[in-house]
């Protein structure tokens, strides 16, 4: 199976490249390169989350930015309360990443359970639209909710802490994000190989047949949707710490669009697709954003050409099509 071998090689290159370039930058004294790669890792993590719903389950969620944003707000709100000693609904603040991460995941998961319970009654284009509408709802709420800054957002004055690491140093924050990304990719692989994952993919291809064997497609899809949102929420918490800022802008519908862009650019449902996609998207922004104010035009053209002529994204382009079954 030469295709499989090429994909393994590509995955290894992506995983190691994502680690080695920042490491080199660390020795060369280029902190900004590390920051860029941290961003890539975080966007990739968010997209790995979406890839479970979209790639495995075929659920085109056009509102995943909401979970990204909610994760960010958990980090922001917890940090603010840890800073000023106030409480959130009686819960004290925290500035420990080890506490914030699970809370961010739970918050995103709970929200996804509610949104998913409504949205999964529909399918196809209705599902795309209703997830977008729910996202808009939360977005407008965040903008007009004054307690945590509304549209101004919520600054995090000191990054949340991790035991034994100074997270203010770019390299330390990067390595945390990289490890979490690798864990999430591992989890994605496990899910894909599990009975749960098999059921999920079977539902995508033929829901009626799955229902006929006595499995509830709704339950499986909802579970996948929640897991997917939890991972994206975790990425949101990391993003807030990277930019030291939580903002409703992270929930804007264009952000949902960008998460989808990352997945399709990389290769839908592919293990390392999100990494490749995030690298290209962030790289494009960093390199061309500095050259021309019209960089969005070029980004649009690249995306368009990818959809039209490079189906399956970067991973497919290099490693060939995936064999199903």
């Amino acid at each position: 199976m030469p295709d499989k071998r090429r994909e393994y090689a590509l995955n290894a290159v992506l995983a190691l490249g994502l680690l080695l370039v920042p490491l080199w930058a660390y020795w060369a004294g280029s902190p900004f390169t590390i920051t860029v790669f941290t961003r890539i890792a975080i966007f990739a993590l968010a997209a790995v989350g979406l890839n479970i719903a979209l790639g495995l389950g075929g659920m085109v969620s056009f509102g995943h930015a909401v979970y990204f944003g909610v994760g960010g707000y958990v980090a922001g709100i917890a940090a603010q309360h840890a800073f000023n000693g106030e409480t959130f609904l009686g819960i004290a603040g925290a500035n420990q990443m080890l506490i914030i991460w699970p809370v961010a995941m739970i918050a995103a998961g709970l929200l996804a359970a509610v949104i998913g319970a409504f949205s999964l009654r529909t399918s196809g284009i209705f599902f795309i639209m209703i997830t977008l509408a729910f996202a808009q709802m939360v977005y407008y709420f965040a903008i007009s909710w004054p307690t945590y800054g509304g549209e101004d957002g919520l600054p995090i004055y000191v990054r949340n802490t991790f035991p034994g690491l100074n997270t203010m140093r770019p390299w330390n924050l990067f390595i945390l994000c990289w490890c979490l990304l690798m864990l999430a990719i591992g989890a994605f692989a496990l899910i894909r190989a599990s009975r749960f994952g098999a059921a999920l993919m079977a539902i995508r291809q033929n829901p009626d047949r799955v229902a006929a064997v006595g499995i509830s497609p709704f339950g499986i899809k909802l579970a996948a949707f929640v897991i997917s949102a939890m991972i994206t929420g975790l990425a949101g918490a990391l993003m807030a710490d990277l930019s030291r800022f939580a903002s409703p802008a992270a929930m804007a519908w264009t952000m949902s669009g960008e998460l989808i862009v990352i997945i399709i650019l990389g290769g839908t449902g592919r293990l390392f697709g999100p990494v490749a996609g995030a690298a290209v998207l962030v790289g494009f922004e960093v390199i061309f954003g500095g050259m021309t104010e019209h960089w969005r035009l070029w980004l649009g053209l690249v995306l368009l050409l990818t959809v039209l002529f490079a189906r399956g994204g970067i991973v497919t382009l290099i490693a060939g099509r995936e064999r199903l079954g």
Binding site: V60, I125, I260, V261, I264, L297, G300, L303
Partner: peptide, 15 residues
């Protein structure tokens, strides 16, 4: 599929 359509027309918005 709708996914490709979403992405292509999203690209068109940018352009």
């Amino acid at each position: 599929d709708h996914l490709d359509q979403v992405l292509a027309t999203f690209a068109l918005i940018l352009i």
